[in-house]
Design a protein around this nucleic acid. Structure first.
Lengths: 198, 198
DNA sequence: TTCCTGTTCCTAGCAGCGCTAGAAATTGGA
DNA sequence: TCCAATTTCTAGCGCTGCTAGGAACAGGAA
């Protein structure tokens, strides 16, 4: 009984170790450097041990992504609650989102770019993911002006995601990023002037 | 001399054949199915022939992407010129962009998602890419209201790109796409109501 | 303490990947 | 008809994700 729990505890610990090693390796050298061999060497176990914890490399990336959602949620929350002004809050949250993506691109990819088998936008989605989305929604909500807040949040999120990914792929010049973000914020902060048939 | 030109012509023809085969294979089974072996078999040459035309697999993907830009530009142009109303034109162009991405996801990925070594947003960028961007800019321009039209176009493009990629990755529910697009269009069609300090 | 059984782990290897050296075959002119 | 230059292919390198099968190591019973 006690032995059993000890073994389970050690196993869980080792699983955390694998996830951390994968994330660190990805953040240091990119996901293409995260091979099962290198990862196994890093955690000082053989490759099959990885497969006793995860079904495959994709599952490891998914586990890394899951950790990332919690981090992102925390940073978004900090940005949002730093100011009482709704317009400023949206700007802060938008900037925080981009900053996260720029600071931890490999992690961001695992979360939002890689084809990964995670439920999004359903109750089955991981809690940390809901939290992240809700942080965005809290910031976007005050600017809904009658539009569906959830959909508005999704749209704002998509715009941020597009800015981030196109910039990282070299499709958008980096130096104009702040101005693009300002344009986006202006369009989402103020109510559409008229006849918006949504 | 004539022999030389014939050889060059045949070589160019074969290069086209490779690009077409790569695109078709990618569109049929995804880029992960486009291996140099399968591609070589498809064009009925050995692998090293591919490398006599392209530096590597990435270069082949880049060539496929280049073809795609011309297609996209044509479809955007058709959508934009189908109506004289600026608001409607923007909606048409946005819908056409999304439709292109949804109809040809593999091609779209090569153009905008894959890490590919193409100059964007500079004079050195391929002509077809400029054309595509200009089509977007033509549709966005009328709604600039003093903002920088180029940056506004980039921002609108990023939003469309975000919607498309998040939806394809299962991050956004497909059934609400039309409403999200409508929200985006409303935000970009109408002037921000006030004090937009851009 | 010694054995036994069940678990845990590693060695070794498979099929496939992008890519390339060097031999074979083909071409076109002398 | 032969030769030189070009073109093309065969074969293989080092790597990938992944796994079968045997070795090593537990922990409980005698």
């Amino acid at each position: 009984m006690s032995i059993q729990t000890r073994k389970e505890r050690e196993r869980a610990q080792r699983e955390k170790l694998i996830i951390t090693a994968a994330r660190e390796l990805a953040e240091a050298e990119g996901w293409e450097a995260v091979t099962t061999r290198r990862l196994a060497e890093q955690v000082e176990y053989s490759q099959p041990v990885l497969y006793s914890h995860f079904k495959g490399k994709d599952a490891i990336m998914t586990a890394v992504a899951l950790e990332g959602f919690a981090d992102l949620a925390a940073e978004l929350r900090a940005a949002r609650t730093a100011t009482p002004d709704p317009a400023h809050a949206l700007a802060q949250v938008g900037a925080a989102y981009v900053a996260f993506a720029e600071r931890r691109p490999a992690l961001y990819d695992a979360m939002f770019s890689q084809t990964v088998n995670l439920p999004f936008a359903t109750p089955q989605a991981p809690a940390a993911l809901h939290t992240s989305f809700n942080e965005l929604a809290e910031a976007v909500g005050p600017h809904a002006h009658g539009a569906d807040p959830g959909l508005l949040t999704e749209t704002f999120w998509a715009a941020l995601h597009g800015l981030v990914t196109l910039m990282r792929g070299g499709r958008l010049p980096r130096e104009a990023h702040d101005r693009r973000l300002a344009i986006l914020l202006a369009r989402f902060t103020h109510e559409p002037a008229s006849q918006g048939r949504l």
